[in-house]
Simulated scan of single mutants.
Amino acid sequence: MRPETEGELAEAIRGATGPLAVRGGGTRGIAVAGEALSLAGLSGITLYEPGALTLVAGAGTPLAEVEAALAAEGQRLAFEPMDHRGLMGTAGEPTLGALFAANISGPRRIQVGAARDFLLGVRFVDGAGRVVKNGGRVMKNVTGYDLVKLMAGAHGTLGVLSEVALKVLPRPETEASLRVAVPDAGAAVRLMSQALGSPFDVTGAAYDPAAGAVLVRVEGFADAVAYRLGRLEAQLAAVGESARLEAEASVAVWRAIRDVEAFHGAAGDVWRLSCKPSEAPEVAARIGAEALLYDWGGGLIWALVAPGMDLRARAGRYDGHATLVRADAATFERLGRFQPQPAPLVALAAGLRAKFDPKGILNPGLMG
């Protein structure tokens, strides 16, 4: 099914007699049982006010179209969403609705927040075929249910987004990064914490164990970037040798981190772990991964492991969770995509699904 309007989307869901596999651009390689429900027809920017830093578009709007419109006005999506195609070996085009449905946020999350923090309002169709609107076109505090935040990260299991309103930010004049040599993960996390705790407005902090280097990024006006990077370089000089990456070189290296390019084409399963940065080195050591990449100052770990390995069992107890991102169908069936939740949260999630999707037809089984 490929509805062309919100009304057609509501009609399709109301008339569904079985499961629906909600589909954006198909770039994340997620397979769900059911009849395909494509959002590609709900496409196009319906409102863009650069002066108000506000954009409204259909959920099926290609991300590239949005980014091109923003770039023409010197603006951008500040939360730096990942492009999964290289990692997953998929085609298609990332879409705006799928981005928010999965709350996809990149390296700049540590400074500006997650994708959901820029979502101002949503329109969606729930599992009963009812059109629901929540939020608006300006950031404000409201009473009642915050369905905007609820829909971000629900992966289409509570409702199918038809339109989103979001906040955008100006694009900085330039950026630059420091690459600092470090001896191990413990030193890397300490350095990243030091950089993030500095007054120099760091917008990226990642560690590549294969290169034995931490990367730290600053953005803004050229003079300010040069000054802040110089101060950071002096502050971190005692840790290890450093090198500067200016402008385009910095852009390229952070795109590679954002998209986990080091794992592209590499055999094995890919996991994504969220944890306290202070716990990251110990958790990573227990995993025994073939390759690792740390982002968010150590709060996010990408791990490439042997096919079929139960990373959650290897990781043991820690304050966080692990998501299986890439594997074969049998491994997803055995281990599940998302971290199993405690019984009280399972009951709460089941209650929400019963309320928003009483027939249980929207991406069934995707989130447990």
Rank of each mutant, 00 (worst) to 15 (best):
A71H: 06
T143I: 10
V182K: 04
L161S: 11
I301H: 01
L42I: 10
G29H: 08
A181V: 14
Y207I: 09
K140S: 14
W254G: 09
L99K: 04
A114T: 07
L96S: 11
L324I: 07
G29M: 12
Y294E: 02
G365Q: 05
L292C: 03
S274N: 12
R179D: 02
P358C: 15
T203K: 03
R109I: 11
A181S: 14
V66H: 06
A188H: 00
L348D: 00
R28P: 07
R228M: 13
S43M: 07
G153C: 10
V32M: 13
A78S: 14
R179M: 13
A59E: 07
G135Q: 09
L96C: 14
G308Q: 06
G299Q: 01
E282P: 00
V346H: 01
I13Q: 05
V202F: 05
P340L: 12
A64L: 13
Q75A: 13
P172Y: 04
E173K: 05
T95G: 12
R2H: 05
A210H: 00
L348N: 01
G299Y: 01
G299R: 02
E73G: 07
G320T: 07
D208G: 05
A185R: 01
V22L: 10
Q341C: 07
G299K: 01
I257K: 03
T90S: 15
G298D: 06
S43W: 01
A243D: 04
A329C: 06
V239I: 15
V148S: 09
F221T: 04
L169R: 08
T46C: 13
P170F: 08
I13K: 04
L169M: 14
A267H: 02
G153S: 11
G186N: 06
L147W: 01
R137Y: 08
G34E: 04
E233V: 13
W302K: 03
E67R: 14
R314S: 13
A16E: 03
I104A: 15
A165R: 05
V112K: 02
R179L: 15
V142D: 07
L120N: 06
